[in-house]
């Protein structure tokens, strides 16, 4: 009963949008309401302060001081202002890494989302085994990244990899997936798309479940075809969930370093290094860590996410206002 009521309403809100609700919203901002609201938020705020504020502070502090291994241990690094950032900007790795980061993120996101959504729509019609198969799609997430990424690099090995074996079986020549500067970035993107599909599938699937079948029936009565139904009904109703999925996907993709690190170490000669792998290489991938520049690159990534987050909020607000 309650279920059916829940599921029916999104349609109404989508058809007769918000102004009335907006007023309602403001009215609800009473003082006691605020107390209750923040009481519910208190745990997460405390949690954020304890577990995120300190690491974030530390990352910023690392990037603003001139850390050597000695001063890292003794804790007496001199304040360096933005010297680490200047160093990073001037580095020859900067421009290619920025470009790779953008390509990696945009291509990964586009494919992860599209494939994830297509699969979610496919699985949303119940058929035999659909639930089990859907669960199996999550299996890649159960594997520690060190294992799944190693498996990919195994499969993509130039000489003994199964992908090249299949290619030669099909009559195509071998591709140096991981060892050619022209291919390495695409190889890590492919692996990353594979890893990202389950996430998109599951979240979007749950989103689809919140759309009641009655809407589809109504649309079908109006004579809409399957394709039209998807674009006119499913996609708009799925928008809030899609938006957050893409945004989270963006944050996760910007951050990806382990897949790339395990598969190619960002190489050969930097051809697959992104900001995330560069940051890791500077801070942890060498015998002598350069914590300062490493943290500076990491903070640039945070700024990138910040920028995208602001865009998201803007778009969301415009939608709410429309």
């Amino acid at each position: 009963m309650s279920m059916s009521r829940v599921t029916r309403t999104p349609v109404r809100t989508a058809r007769a949008p918000v102004p009335a609700q907006g007023r309602e919203r403001r009215a609800a901002r009473t003082r006691s309401g605020q107390w209750a609201a923040w009481a519910f938020l208190a745990p997460v705020v405390v949690y954020l302060l304890i577990f995120y504020a300190y690491p974030l502070y530390r990352n910023v502090e690392l990037s603003l001081r001139n850390y050597t291994v000695r001063s890292f241990v003794q804790g007496d690094a001199p304040f360096a202002g933005f010297a680490n950032y200047a160093k990073v900007f001037a580095d020859a790795t900067f421009a290619p890494a920025l470009w790779h980061t953008i390509v990696f993120t945009v291509v990964s996101l586009a494919f992860q989302f599209t494939i994830g959504l297509a699969l979610a729509v496919f699985f949303s019609r119940n058929f035999r085994l659909s639930a089990t198969l859907r669960a199996l799609f999550l299996v890649p997430w159960l594997l520690p990244l060190i294992v799944s990424a190693s498996t990919w690099s195994w499969m993509l090995n130039s000489d003994s990899g199964v992908v090249n074996a299949a290619l030669s079986w099909a009559g195509a020549g071998p591709v140096n997936w991981l060892t050619s500067p022209d291919w390495s970035l695409w190889s890590v993107i492919i692996a990353n798309i594979w890893i990202g599909i389950p996430f998109n599938l599951v979240v979007l699937y749950s989103g689809l479940q919140a759309i009641p079948s009655a809407v589809y029936e109504a649309a079908a009565l109006d004579g809409a075809g399957a394709w039209q139904r998807f674009w006119r009904v499913t996609f708009p109703l799925l928008r809030p969930v899609s938006a957050i999925t893409v945004l989270l996907g963006l944050v996760y993709t910007l951050k990806v370093f382990d897949i790339i690190w395990i598969m190619t170490k960002g190489g050969p000669s930097g051809s697959s290094s992104t900001f995330a792998t560069w940051s890791y290489r500077l801070g942890f991938g060498n015998l002598v860590p350069s914590f300062g520049p490493g943290a500076a690159v990491g903070n640039l990534l945070i700024l990138m996410a910040l920028a995208f987050g602001l865009v998201y909020i803007r778009v969301q607000r415009r939608q709410a206002a429309a």
Binding site: V44, L48, F51, Y52, P55, L56, R58, N59, L247, L248, V251, Y252, L254, K255, F257, A276, S279, Y280, G283, F284, A295, G298, L301, I302, A305, L306, G309
Partner: peptide, 12 residues
């Protein structure tokens, strides 16, 4: 919350 997730795991 969104930004908090950007802090690299190893720094955390």
């Amino acid at each position: 919350l969104l930004i908090a997730q950007m802090i690299p795991g190893i720094i955390m």
